[in-house]
Write a protein that binds this DNA or RNA. Structure first.
Lengths: 253, 253
DNA sequence: GTGCGGCCTCCCGCTACGTGAGGGTCAACC
DNA sequence: GGTTGACCCTCACGTAGCGGGAGGCCGCAC
């Protein structure tokens, strides 16, 4: 059982070197190795490769692909949905370009020569869109989200450990304040909220108060996040959310 | 008049560095320079840039773009037509991919896990197409045509001169044979046809007999080629075509 | 005349591999 | 059991298409 590099390469239509490369950079390592050092790919590896190739085809840098595939709570279906969405956007853009080319052909056959602006405005119009709204277009997310991905994608294992440790300390402190009966809009809670915000800014992205509020709301709304807090103390998630809001309100007044 | 690098960059939505690069590799050099060495781009340069960006967007390597833009007898309209064609193919491919993703989603929600072949067959099916028929897809041409482009793109002016001289000699010899009353399926004519084929193989691409037959047919069908032969002697084009066919028939029997 | 933005030319760095070199591995076939 | 040929391994250097600075000249305003 399992597949050799050559088999996988033929199946997927890539070169062996490409698979070696993906192994090197940790994007797609074989599940096992034989005693003699041969790579053995499992079915799960193949599925991963499928997604890798898809995102690559859509122009994503490999580093980013690694991040989005490793992102917790993302399963096959969400990836497929996202890929479908991306494909549709892409098709739309190409259609616009085709229409622009048609216009250019008309203009050309009619002997009209385009002004320099028209030249790129008419069918190079997809470029500004690509720059200003690229992050948006790709992720339906925010610029901060992108920034986060990039930064965190470059973190070493050590960085992750320290990041996690810091996060754990803050959570612990919140739990203490909560169980200790301190109000969510009190000094201590707000202090912790501010610390939390600083923590995010340091490690992930420029966390404004507005974004921070959104995060707080998300914590209570999204079970995956709540799962990180509730074990400490029932109701802690809501407490943290309230503290964040109180802190943001104070800071912006 | 004319545009500076910065202006062109903003117009076209690329960086100054990119324009510098295109200048370096000779893909897109400014029509002029100011006394102080500043680049000055003309309207013609802008049009060229427009096409460059388009082909680039469609995934063509810059070297190839240079060749197809410099290829004689290609005007704006033919490029626009080609671009439109390429866009449509591209859209078609993306649609296939989208359909494949939909199927994958169905399979996934139904709890069916794909076999390894299906995984890439189902929606990686565009890859064989991309390899085996890429030249076809891109050019509506043959692999030999591609090979030709590559080789001829790397020829120096000297090479071109020798190439042209050789070609002229062969044509001259054909004209002599023709006006001398030698039959198109005679020894001499076939000898010249073989020489012609060797000439192409040496300079352009591996010219099989089948391709050679196609070339002969094209010579009579396409006025641009005929224009090269007819001035030597009226009917020469047809004569050459017949000689080529006779030679090919003999060689393959 | 002194900024300040734009332009110039190196030149090094990055990604996603291509392309050998040099050398083990494995199944088959004699 | 030896040899052959297809396949595998790990370096390690090369390439395309730029990004991004360094160090320095140009040109126009104040």
């Amino acid at each position: 059982m399992g597949y050799s590099v050559g088999q996988v390469a033929r199946l997927a239509g890539v070169t062996v070197r490409t698979l070696h490369h993906y192994d090197e950079i940790g994007l797609m390592s074989p599940g096992q190795r034989t005693a003699s050092g041969y790579r053995r790919y499992t079915d799960a590896d193949l599925e991963r490769l499928q997604h890798v190739l898809f995102y690559r085809e859509l122009g994503f840098p490999l580093e980013e692909i690694a991040v989005i595939l490793d992102e917790p709570g993302s399963d096959t279906l969400t990836h497929l949905k996202r890929q479908h969405e991306l494909l549709n956007r892409r098709i739309g853009r190409l259609r616009e370009m085709a229409a622009a080319v048609e216009r250019a052909m008309e203009a050309n056959t009619m002997g009209i020569s385009l002004t320099p602006e028209e030249r790129f405005e008419i069918f190079g119009d997809f470029r500004p869109e690509e720059h200003e709204a690229e992050a948006e277009e790709r992720w339906g997310g925010t610029e901060a989200f992108e920034q986060s991905r990039r930064r965190m994608g470059k973190m070493t294992k050590d960085d992750w450990a320290r990041f996690a440790a810091e996060a754990a300390r803050t959570t612990e402190a919140f739990a203490e304040a909560f169980t200790g009966g301190l109000p969510a809009d009190g000094e201590r809670a707000m202090e912790l909220a501010e610390e939390h915000r600083a923590h995010i800014t340091r490690w992930c992205y420029d966390c404004t108060y507005e974004i921070h509020r959104g995060l707080g709301d998300m914590y209570v709304a999204d079970a995956r996040f709540a799962a990180n807090y509730e074990p400490h103390a029932a109701g802690l998630t809501q407490y943290i959310r309230d503290a964040i809001h109180a802190n943001a309100d104070r800071a912006e007044s």
